[in-house]
Simulated scan of single mutants.
Amino acid sequence: MKHQLTVLVYALALTACADHAARERLGIEDATLLQTGFGATQDEAAGAVNAQWVSAYAPIASSSTALVSLQTRLDRLPGDKNGYFHAKAQCWINAAQQARQAGDHWGFVEEAIGQAATITLSLENGTPLSAANPALRTVSTVRPDLWTIVNTIKSDPAVARCPQAQPPLACAEVELTQAGHEAWRRSFTNAEKHLPEVQDNLRQAAERALQCEQSVQTPASAQGPAPAPAARSQQKITLKADSLFRFNGGDEAAILAAGKRQLDEVATDLKTVPAQHELKITGYADRLGDKSYNLGLSQQRARTVERYLRTHGVSLPMTAQGRGSANPLVDCRWAKRAVLRRCLAPNRRVEIELVAARS
């Protein structure tokens, strides 16, 4: 694994960007993003705002006030301020500030604030966090090769044992996401401007992890058990079904591009989990519609997630089940069905729980 980190350090140091054909170099795979002029789609699949997005981010009435409040809360947190999640929250705040100062009114400012707020609230309350990167409406995937490097570094045990390597890794993820936003709004040249900092942060993360390994003088047996990776600080990962699957879809063909990205990151995290664990994958639906149909759909989605993780290298024992509308996270009583469906969105989910393996 150390050899792999060394290769990444050299590869990142040698990476350079030319000044032409920015869109092609970004490695964009989203077909809707490559369409321009007449015939270019303007629907929700292409990133058009929907009522669910408005409902989630409408409370952010003043981005400047929200950013000041978040920065104050983050600064007041006790304990290690250089950890993975603290750094990630700070980088989300910085990304929101940059986009706001640039006059970006596409929704990324609100989404970045939302991500920083989610992390900060969890750090304040001591609740589990997932290191998986979110699927955001205003972001498309760029430079899949760099995302592969992100996941490779994140899954290396050396990074988990090296706190100094985690902040640049976290910020590289946010910066690469911000580049994806610039590409989403078809500003391909601006997207590329983020890449040198992404590469520098990834190089720092890999170099620091190597330095940490080289500085260890005592045998591993004398050091006690290694601390769990930041990605595994949680025992349960909850994935929103609406961001994983197309509407009413549950097989692998129905997995959205953003859903595949989430599952890829979850798989990367889970491949570092010791073999003494197993996974319980549970699908849930909302209470709308036929109960038997919802039960079947929730079960199909859980089994699809199980198969996806298996085919992407997760070797832990797994069980998958569907619970239909059981264990709702929210209880909504709206009269209008469209509003009710949006309100019930948190109940449509797939939970991946890490438990100790049964003897």
Score class of each variant (00 low, 15 high):
residue 261 R to K: 15
residue 252 E to P: 09
residue 83 G to V: 01
residue 126 G to A: 03
residue 94 N to K: 11
residue 45 A to S: 13
residue 37 G to F: 13
residue 56 A to S: 09
residue 28 I to P: 03
residue 162 C to M: 07
residue 226 A to N: 05
residue 304 T to K: 02
residue 184 W to K: 13
residue 135 A to I: 00
residue 2 K to T: 11
residue 156 D to M: 03
residue 100 R to V: 00
residue 310 R to P: 01
residue 340 L to S: 02
residue 80 D to T: 00
residue 56 A to I: 09
residue 89 A to V: 01
residue 265 E to L: 15
residue 187 S to K: 06
residue 283 G to C: 05
residue 89 A to R: 02
residue 5 L to N: 04
residue 317 P to N: 04
residue 139 V to L: 01
residue 183 A to M: 05
residue 93 I to R: 07
residue 47 G to Q: 10
residue 255 I to Y: 04
residue 145 D to Q: 07
residue 152 T to L: 04
residue 9 V to M: 08
residue 217 Q to F: 12
residue 321 Q to G: 10
residue 218 T to P: 03
residue 345 A to T: 11
residue 317 P to W: 08
residue 319 T to S: 14
residue 259 G to S: 10
residue 61 A to I: 10
residue 294 N to P: 08
residue 41 T to M: 13
residue 192 E to P: 02
residue 16 A to V: 14
residue 225 P to V: 10
residue 327 N to E: 12
residue 48 A to E: 12
residue 50 N to Y: 09
residue 76 R to Q: 13
residue 259 G to R: 10
residue 12 L to F: 11
residue 256 L to Y: 02
residue 279 L to N: 06
residue 236 K to C: 10
residue 108 F to T: 07
residue 175 E to H: 14
residue 223 Q to A: 07
residue 286 D to I: 05
residue 54 V to R: 15
residue 125 N to Q: 14
residue 40 A to F: 13
residue 8 L to E: 11
residue 264 D to C: 11
residue 226 A to C: 01
residue 47 G to M: 08
residue 236 K to N: 08
residue 155 S to N: 05
residue 260 K to W: 06
residue 291 K to A: 15
residue 305 V to D: 02
residue 358 R to W: 06
residue 79 G to I: 01
residue 67 L to S: 06
residue 215 S to K: 12
residue 168 P to F: 04
residue 165 A to T: 04
residue 223 Q to K: 09
residue 204 Q to V: 04
residue 193 K to C: 00
residue 50 N to A: 11
residue 161 R to A: 10
residue 69 S to W: 11
residue 13 A to M: 10
residue 336 K to V: 13
residue 175 E to C: 12
residue 258 A to P: 09
residue 74 L to P: 06
residue 198 V to H: 06
residue 147 W to G: 02
residue 298 S to H: 06
residue 353 E to G: 07
residue 90 Q to L: 08
residue 190 N to I: 00
residue 129 L to W: 03
residue 80 D to P: 00
residue 353 E to H: 08
residue 257 A to S: 14
residue 356 A to L: 09
residue 52 Q to E: 11
residue 318 M to V: 02
residue 46 A to W: 11
residue 107 G to E: 05
residue 45 A to V: 09
residue 165 A to H: 03
residue 289 G to Q: 13
residue 9 V to G: 08
residue 170 A to E: 04
residue 233 S to T: 10
residue 269 D to S: 15
residue 224 G to I: 01
residue 36 T to Q: 14
residue 19 D to H: 12
residue 18 A to N: 13
residue 43 D to N: 15
residue 289 G to F: 14
residue 31 A to M: 07
residue 322 G to N: 09
residue 307 R to F: 02
residue 12 L to D: 06
residue 81 K to I: 00
residue 240 K to L: 15
residue 67 L to C: 04
residue 253 A to L: 13
residue 316 L to I: 07
residue 323 R to A: 10
residue 117 A to M: 14
residue 231 A to N: 02
residue 164 Q to W: 03
residue 312 H to I: 01
residue 311 T to Q: 08
residue 263 L to C: 05
residue 18 A to V: 08
residue 196 P to N: 01
residue 80 D to H: 01
residue 196 P to C: 04
residue 299 Q to T: 14
residue 268 T to D: 14
residue 43 D to V: 12
residue 224 G to L: 00
residue 23 R to S: 07
residue 184 W to D: 00
residue 42 Q to S: 15
residue 143 R to T: 04
residue 92 W to A: 02
residue 172 A to K: 03
residue 279 L to G: 02
residue 234 Q to M: 11
residue 13 A to Q: 13
